[in-house]
Amino acid sequence: MKNRHFHTRYLTDPLFARLSLCAKVIWQPITCMADDIGIFPADGHAIHMAIPAYHGDFTAADVDAAVEELVKAGFISTPWSIDGRTFAKRSWFENEHWTRNPRQLYPLEGQEKVSRGSSETPCAIGTGKGKGKGKSKGRGNTRNPSQVDKSTLRPGEFLEEPKAELRFPLRGGKWFAVTEESYKQYQNSYPDIGPDLFAVLSKACQWASSLSPKNRKANGALFLKNWLDRQNTSARFKQSSFKQSTPDPKPPVNQFDWED
């Protein structure tokens, strides 16, 4: 197992917050068990052995159920079996734990065998092939969408341009769109923005669409969250300032009994 950091975006990710305790606990061990392209053994017993501090709280069956929960939430790909062993791929791994010379330890889906420690593996977008040859900055931003791994798509991301009204392009040839479900979640999460929510989202999408290909956002959901957080704080400040500037009405003349 490698010592990898816990990405701070999961501290404020609403999808991650809705996961069960067991799914949250195994998320970091899965990250550390994965090889340099994000593939890990999706075996409940193996993952259970990686969390010794929780052996009294969870069983291997609980871990298997948590893995299925992560699959349904889109945090890991659908597992596959090769030679009696089960593997899966952790989503967004290349973006969060980029390695210059990635080494593949576990076979991809449909791959019969992999030489242990081989560095001739699929690299992150824009990193070139093999042992770091052909690296170029920004070239990966124009990668063909058909070459993007569908298992790495986050909720709201698409390979082709969606028909949704609120959309903007991402790095790597992908697109992000605000779905009807996510729009309702934004309404509940940012009540201070109120009826201006659509205008705020439209302005954010226009700004993100105006960026050059090499400066486009990699995570559309995180970009919108930060944008809406700032707008919500600004709206709340304006409301509080208006309340403070409004003078209190004068009490009636005979409301109090004064003593001489």
Rank of each mutant, 00 (worst) to 15 (best):
Arg4Thr: 02
His7Pro: 02
His7Phe: 05
Thr8Arg: 13
Thr12Glu: 08
Leu15Pro: 02
Ala17Thr: 13
Arg18Cys: 00
Arg18Trp: 00
Val25Phe: 03
Gln28Ala: 03
Gln28His: 13
Phe40Cys: 05
Gly44Lys: 11
His45Met: 13
His45Gln: 14
Ala46Pro: 02
Tyr54Thr: 13
His55Thr: 10
His55Asp: 04
His55Tyr: 06
His55Trp: 07
Asp57Glu: 05
Ala60Trp: 08
Glu69Cys: 03
Leu70Cys: 11
Ala73Tyr: 01
Ala73Met: 10
Gly74Gln: 07
Ile76Ser: 01
Ser77Gly: 11
Trp80Gln: 01
Trp80Ile: 00
Ser81Glu: 15
Ile82His: 03
Asp83Tyr: 01
Arg85Leu: 02
Thr86Ala: 01
Tyr106Leu: 09
Leu108Ile: 01
Glu109Arg: 14
Gly110Met: 08
Pro122Met: 04
Pro122Cys: 02
Ala124Tyr: 11
Ala124Cys: 08
Gly128Arg: 07
Gly128His: 03
Gly128Lys: 08
Lys129Asp: 02
Gly130Gln: 04
Lys131Asn: 04
Gly132Lys: 01
Lys137Cys: 03
Gly138His: 10
Arg139His: 03
Val148Pro: 00
Lys150Leu: 06
Lys150Ala: 04
Ser151Cys: 10
Leu159Met: 13
Glu161Leu: 10
Pro162Met: 10
Lys163Thr: 10
Leu170Ile: 14
Lys174Ala: 04
Ser182Arg: 15
Ser189Pro: 02
Pro191Ser: 11
Leu197Lys: 14
Ala199Thr: 08
Ser202Glu: 12
Cys205Ala: 15
Ser212Thr: 05
Pro213Ala: 10
Asn215Ser: 04
Arg216Tyr: 11
Arg216Pro: 00
Lys217Trp: 11
Ala218His: 09
Leu224Thr: 01
Asp229Leu: 01
Arg236Glu: 08
Gln239Ser: 14
Asn254Phe: 15
Asp257Gln: 14
Trp258Thr: 07
